[in-house]
Design a protein around this nucleic acid. Structure first.
Length: 433
RNA sequence: GUGAGCGUAGCUCAGCUGGUAGAGCUCCGGACUGUGGAUCCGGCGGUCGUGGGUUCGAAUCCCAUCGCUCACCCCA
């Protein structure tokens, strides 16, 4: 045997024991999005490199050193998408969705960044993103927050997450603030650490976010963007906050909250957890009113967010078992003996026809009676259906309860067995609690 | 890109200062010719990440390399 081929670094397999949790998260989010009238859009994972350079910002780390970029056979420079917004905007422009209409969209899928993998950060990771186009007011910004909050409630994550918000103002305010900020830090350059001195050139706003406690004092004295906001941006932020207050959403204003991507303006927000080590941001987004125009469209207000599925799944890791149990088959059909084995698949089909929603795993590959019951047990099924020579001859089936002590087993005709399974399926599909 | 820790069976790990590998779980079978989840017995399964060095002898010590993990950076 030659050496087995390994997966590519930072690209993870999500194994069967893990997928039920993913499905629970994905279904929770999809359900909430539907409840707010959002529509799904699907775009390619591969785009022209230029799209990301023009949207994310050519000098950001993402574009400079984290994209999977290659030249295809035509000589075009293509990149695996490092985030979803750019492709979403591109698709909307290309198909004329933004001609005076508003759209509330969402998408889901893998994103790719060539970073050093660590907890909560992988080279292929998965996001569910939401983008709203054509609505300028702070009401949509607040709606996005409420939507997130509903997702957290659905998943039982309310206690684990806190909301931080900020406003980045508009382009003009940001430019003036940035100039003053750089001047301030240049005057205090001796107090900056090496990272921040570098950021002075690349992304000075990031200095405000430094984790180095020795820098706390310099940062505290830095000019605050809030002092640069014009009346409109201020009103927008106030409107956003009032709506959150009225909805009873708890948040803190973090004036140092900035974004890694250049296209954001005004409202920005992050949902943060302390339970995941260094990668605490589980969901983040904000307004990006300038991006559509920047990509060649008409000026179109826009706001959105993305949530990191790996991180949310990690928060729910303790519920892996219950998520798996919810997906386990209702029943496992054991068939022992030559005749029963031949009849089993047909019987399973009839039961699936007769009982909508039934999850029935039929034993394949033979095995002793004991072995088949063991598999039934391992499958997580609530009942084992037993088809032996006796049952086959009598046209009946034995239904053995595997999880309820004292319920034992009963041999029924197919009608009665189907009725029992129907009851089981209905009990399982009732919302919990 | 930088730093630290760790690589022994499919999984979780033991293996003391070097004497050429072990447990639990899983899987298969048996005790129990048609009854799982408990117990006991047996079986399958490893060139100790890889390559080199030191040594009579290396899973153990040294070097290199690859991989994983966490942190920095960056970010969802």
């Amino acid at each position: 045997m030659s050496a087995p081929i390994q997966s590519v670094r930072g690209m993870n397999d999500i194994l069967p024991e893990e997928t039920p949790l993913w499905q629970r998260v994905e279904e929770a989010v999809r359900g909430v999005l539907a409840a707010y009238g959002y529509q799904e859009i699907r775009t390619p994972v591969l785009e022209r490199t230029e799209l990301f350079a023009r949207s994310i910002g050519a000098v950001t780390d993402i574009v400079e050193k984290e994209m999977y970029t290659f030249t295809d056979r035509n000589g075009d420079s293509l990149s695996l998408r490092p985030e979803g917004t750019a492709g979403c905007v591109r698709a909307c422009l290309q198909h004329g969705l933004l001609r005076g209409q508003s759209h509330r969209l969402w998408y889901q899928g893998p994103m790719f960044r060539h970073e050093r993998p660590q907890k909560g950060r992988y080279r292929q990771f998965h996001q569910i993103g939401v983008e709203v186009f054509g609505i300028p007011g702070p009401d949509v910004d607040a709606e996005l927050i409420l939507m997130c909050a509903r997702v957290w409630r659905t998943l039982g994550l309310v206690e684990d997450l806190r909301l931080e918000i900020n406003t980045l103002g508009d382009a003009e305010a940001r430019r003036r603030h940035r100039a003053d900020l750089v001047a301030y830090f240049r005057a205090h350059e001796a107090e900056l650490d090496a990272d921040s001195r570098r950021r002075l050139e690349t992304n000075p706003l990031r200095i405000l976010d430094s984790k180095n406690p020795e820098m706390a004092e310099v940062i505290a004295g830095a000019p605050s963007l809030l002092d640069y906001l014009d009346a409109e941006a201020k009103a927008h932020f106030e409107g956003f906050r009032k709506r959150l207050d009225e909805a009873g959403v708890r948040y803190t204003v973090n004036p140092r909250l900035v974004r890694g991507l250049d296209y954001y303006n005004r409202t920005v927000f992050e949902w943060i957890t302390d339970r995941l080590g260094a990668q605490g941001t589980v969901c983040a987004g904000g307004r990006y009113d300038g991006l559509v125009e920047q990509l060649g469209g008409r000026p179109t207000p826009a706001v959105g967010f993305a949530l990191g599925l790996e991180r949310i799944v990690a928060l729910l890791e303790g519920e892996r078992g219950t998520a798996a149990a919810a997906r386990a088959p209702h029943a496992y059909l054991a068939a022992v003996g030559e005749g029963p084995e031949r009849a089993a698949l047909g019987l399973a089909e009839r039961l699936r026809d007769a009982v909508p929603g039934l999850r029935l795993a039929a034993n394949c590959g033979g095995g002793s009676f004991k072995a088949q019951l063991k598999r039934a047990d391992r499958s997580g099924a609530a009942v084992a259906l037993i088809l032996g020579e006796d049952e086959l001859a009598a046209g009946r089936i034995t239904l053995k309860w595997l999880r309820e002590a004292g319920r034992g087993q009963e041999t029924l005709d197919l009608e009665a067995a189907a009725a029992a399974l129907r009851t089981l399926v209905e009990a399982g599909s009732r919302p919990a609690g």
